[in-house]
Design a protein around this nucleic acid. Sequence first.
DNA 1: CATAAAAAAGATAAAAATATCTTTTAATCT
DNA 2: AGATTAAAAGATATTTTTATCTTTTTTATG
Lengths: 143, 143
Amino acid sequence: MLSNSSKYAIKGVLYLALNSNADHKVLVRDIYDTIHVPEAYLAKLLQELSRHGIISSTRGPKGGFYLSDEDRKHTLLEIVKVIDGENRLNSCVMGIRNCDMDNPCVLHKLVGGNKSKFINVLESTTILDLIDGKKGVEEFFPM
Amino acid sequence: MLSNSSKYAIKGVLYLALNSNADHKVLVRDIYDTIHVPEAYLAKLLQELSRHGIISSTRGPKGGFYLSDEDRKHTLLEIVKVIDGENRLNSCVMGIRNCDMDNPCVLHKLVGGNKSKFINVLESTTILDLIDGKKGVEEFFPM
DNA sequence: CATAAAAAAGATAAAAATATCTTTTAATCT
DNA sequence: AGATTAAAAGATATTTTTATCTTTTTTATG
Ligand code: FES
Ligand code: FES
């Protein structure tokens, strides 16, 4: 479904969404324990997301990772694509060719619909949507 | 979604469903090229399925793998469980705990439904269902 | 400017998934 | 019985994913 890395990344971003903004940056060191992701690994993932403009960061003292208002408009799919690459989600359930309505594999009719719905959810759900209405970390973590 | 191994296994079983029976056993050597699965790897997978009673096999001359009528009643989920284990499919999208309606993670509401539908399809689709109405290998392979 | 803080980048390590190769066992046929 | 065929089992190799460790660069501050 999703790689471990993508799950970690989503967790990290979710934490940032709940606990950071441009005036309050947070360190990996302060996140990893709460969301149960290895510290160094989480750092790599957040760096990757930052490099791709999904989240924000600044170096040096008072630095850290955070989400700007713009960042919060990014979708789950964008996160997944940065971490897992374009192809992982798009590939056919049977791993044959890129999923193609015109040329479906045996399982396409059976499960293809679910797959596209899943992708659709990821594509249409922003970080903001996810935390909408929720206020506490407790509502999400430990997860 | 499904591991590579599971996809291979399903392909192999599908081939057997189309091209074998108790009186016509087939060799891995005659399958792997058509379904594009490494020979030795496919052998391992079919052996595993045979060991678990999902497919049938006999050794020695005139031996090979095949599907009995009973074998054809097995579901896709059974295949996947033998190859990927019980937990891969059941685990939460966010990889947190076993997916539990009573205690859902953030993404459960969004994608949990799709996931259970997917599993449901695998559970309710037998080999026989899959090839029902189809007669030629061409309809399935190359896949 | 020197120092410290923190992300970025790079290198390395460990584990899991994927794949292949070799030996053994069972069945068939002469 | 002996030879041959083919799966079963076991051992090994490769690749990918997951994870950690080290060095470098950037930024802030005294
Ligand atoms: S073509 Fe295989 S799932 Fe769509
Ligand atoms: S609890 Fe996470 S997907 Fe169900």
